[in-house]
Simulated scan of single mutants.
Amino acid sequence: MVEEVKTYHAEVTRDGRFWLIRVREIDRSTQALRYKDVVTMANELIEIMDGVKEDEYDLHLEVHLPSSVKDHQARAEVLREEAQRKQAEAAAEHRAAVQELLALGVSQREAGEVLGMSFQRVSQLAKSS
């Protein structure tokens, strides 16, 4: 029979210069100066308070950030997705320009010179039609 592993939930917030770590299941807190130390500090707290070893439980972090930070992150994601779409559109337009020049009898090397692209890029675009 497989024994179920207990999961501890650590709520992490910024508190002045420190990261405050509150482990719900043991109703205790600790802190870390750097975010990279949050997991270590949470594990140490759990091990001291509950007497379990790190490989005997799972730790789930819930990082609570200010709403303004979440807003910036959400906006950045929207912009990143928009940039990806725009990049795909730009590639399609480059491809169309290359194909039109080649259809006019311009060589790939000349098309690259005219469009400010390398011969290799023109060749790639010509093959991706």
Rank of each mutant, 00 (worst) to 15 (best):
M1P: 14
M1G: 13
M1C: 08
E3F: 08
E3N: 04
E4H: 00
K6E: 11
Y8L: 04
H9K: 14
H9C: 02
A10G: 03
E11D: 03
T13D: 10
G16E: 05
G16K: 06
F18E: 14
W19S: 05
L20N: 09
R22M: 04
V23R: 03
R24G: 11
E25R: 00
E25T: 00
E25N: 03
D27R: 10
S29E: 15
T30V: 00
A32P: 02
L33Q: 15
Y35C: 11
V38F: 08
V39I: 09
V39E: 15
V39R: 14
M41A: 04
M41R: 05
N43C: 12
E44M: 09
I48Q: 11
M49S: 11
D50A: 15
V52H: 02
K53Y: 00
K53S: 14
Y57Q: 08
D58Y: 15
V63H: 12
V63M: 06
L65R: 13
P66E: 15
P66Y: 09
P66H: 13
S67I: 01
S67C: 04
D71G: 10
D71F: 02
A74E: 07
R75T: 03
V78C: 07
K86V: 12
K86P: 03
Q87N: 13
Q87R: 15
A90S: 14
A91H: 12
A91F: 12
A91T: 08
A92F: 04
E93M: 05
E93K: 14
A97K: 15
Q99C: 07
E100H: 13
E100L: 12
L102C: 02
A103H: 06
L104F: 04
V106T: 15
V106Y: 06
R109N: 03
A111N: 01
G112M: 04
E113W: 00
V114M: 13
V114C: 06
L115F: 09
G116S: 13
M117S: 11
R121I: 01
V122D: 02
V122H: 10
S123A: 06
Q124C: 03
S128G: 04
